[in-house]
């Protein structure tokens, strides 16, 4: 039973990877390579609109970070706040357990 479960999981992951591989191969056929790094050109050939600049987003963000540096700062700030909370939680309950364990 347990071995069956592992087998099913292994097969489904293998099938998923194969599917991705096939999809990737088909997408690149006849339109250059994905590895070439020119995804945008590829998209222009196959999906008109989204990447060749023809599609204009109909709504713009209410507020945008004024520059790349500010954006990077805000992202790392956000990650830092989240990480502080995760660390606080872990430390708080670890300490609590040590105290109550004595």
């Amino acid at each position: 039973m347990k071995k069956m479960g592992y087998l099913i999981i292994f097969i489904s992951i293998a099938a998923l990877l194969l599917l991705v591989y096939i999809a990737g191969n088909q997408a690149t056929n006849g339109a250059g390579t994905l590895a070439g790094g020119d995804d945008d050109n590829l998209l222009v050939n196959q999906i008109g609109g989204i990447s060749d600049g023809q599609y204009k987003p109909w709504f713009t963000p209410v507020w945008e970070p004024p520059s790349g540096e500010v954006e990077t700062f805000l992202f790392s700030f956000q990650a830092a706040i989240g990480a502080i909370f995760v660390g606080y939680y872990a430390g708080y309950y670890k300490g609590k357990k040590e105290v109550s364990g004595k």
Binding site: V20, A23, G24, Q26, A27, T28, L34, D39, L42, L43, Q46, I47
Partner: peptide, 9 residues
């Protein structure tokens, strides 16, 4: 397929 192929990488 195209979108997913780009995402998958």
């Amino acid at each position: 397929k195209l979108f997913f192929a780009i995402f998958a990488v």
